[in-house]
């Protein structure tokens, strides 16, 4: 993370080139296929990508772990579902309201929680996630309990009806890519540099005048908003929500996506999402029962053989990209 205006400009251009290639490649997918199976994989990949990018900012950039992010996805999904089906709120407004709610809750629980470190932070966020999960089950009047909420309408905007899977693909990926671009630019912003500093040493960052608690809270809230928006999109796409989509397991797999992709740059989130989404789909073709056996073993193999900072994959990436920031 060398400063210098000139080097920033010189890196800004290629970064946006590769972003453009990614964006064009993904957005062109509906031109090649009408297969709703493939489009549904992409649709879920987009929302997962949003959550993973948010988590990457929290974990990769700021070094703060969260094992409770499924709860924020759940808040978004349930927020949209309840507001739209019960209160007849406009779906887009409901999406924004849920995101604001998620941010507020993240802010509230973040203040005491982010003071904790390492495994105690993991435990606290995990506890938070479990509490939200229990509330989703128990507040039956609001959430309809374990039966879930049915009849959530697909999104639409004026004449555009996003129940068409190809249109929805464009919508959800545009949103995901905007968020990704935001994250790309954020890493080199004031906040991004502050977060990187505090990941290395919180004390050193503080001594340099970084308000570490506030910065951590900011990125925590940002990642909660991303998760919440992703949840809202999923809810409208599946047209149904139930509490078992927002368990600890989901949170853990999200963190796995971040770690497997690596902390090197936000592009790690692309890799992580891709691997975690596509590997199980491929394994399924061979043996459905053994999906998680093979997937679990592959996670171990990836972590052991393709380390985050040095090792075959990192060296390959280094080679491909010419130079790299650490």
């Amino acid at each position: 993370m060398s400063g210098g205006t000139s080097s920033r400009v010189s890196r800004f251009v290629p970064r946006n080139w590769s972003f453009a290639v990614l964006a064009v490649a993904v957005l062109l997918v509906p031109a090649f296929t009408r297969d709703t199976y493939i489009l549904s994989i992409f649709a879920f990949m987009a929302t997962r990508f949003m959550v993973v990018v948010g988590l990457w900012l929290l974990l990769g950039l700021a070094g703060q772990i969260s094992l409770g992010h499924a709860a924020f996805v759940g808040l978004g999904a349930y927020g949209s579902a309840i507001l739209v089906t019960r209160a007849d709120v406009n779906p887009w407004l409901a999406l924004v309201m849920s995101a604001v709610l998620a941010a507020a809750i993240a802010g509230l629980i973040g203040i005491p929680t982010l003071k904790l470190k390492g495994h105690y932070l993991a435990m606290a966020t995990m506890g938070f996630g479990e509490i939200i999960h229990i509330l989703l089950i128990q507040l039956k009047g609001l959430t309809n309990g374990t039966d879930g909420i049915t009849g959530i309408p697909p999104l639409s905007l004026g004449p555009l009806n996003f129940s068409d899977p190809r249109l929805y693909h464009l919508l959800v990926w545009v949103v995901a890519l905007i968020f990704f671009l935001l994250a790309l630019n954020l890493t080199n912003s004031r906040l991004g540099r502050a977060l990187q500093a505090l990941r290395r040493s919180e004390v050193a960052a503080q001594s340099l005048g970084v308000d570490t608690s506030w910065r951590k809270l900011q990125v925590f809230m940002l990642s909660a908003v991303a998760a919440s928006i992703a949840g809202s999109f999923d809810a409208h796409y599946v047209q149904f929500v139930s509490p078992d989509s927002f368990t600890l397991n989901v949170s853990v797999i999200l963190v796995c996506s971040v770690v497997i992709g690596g902390f090197r740059s936000v592009w790690g989130a692309v890799w992580g999402t891709l691997l975690i989404t596509i590997l199980p789909e491929i394994i399924k073709r061979f043996n459905e029962d053994a999906v998680n056996l093979v997937f679990g073993l592959l996670i171990i193999v990836i972590v052991v053989l393709l380390p985050v900072k040095s090792g075959p994959l990192a060296r390959l990436q280094l080679l491909l990209r010419g130079r790299e920031r650490l």
């Binding site: 963190v255 796995c256 029962d289 056996l293 997937f295 679990g296 171990i300 985050v308």
Partner: peptide
């Protein structure tokens, strides 16, 4: 990295 390896192990053992 070690924690993620144990997550992988838990998936594999369960299955």
């Amino acid at each position: 990295a070690q924690v993620i390896a144990t997550v992988g192990a838990s998936l594999a053992l369960r299955t």
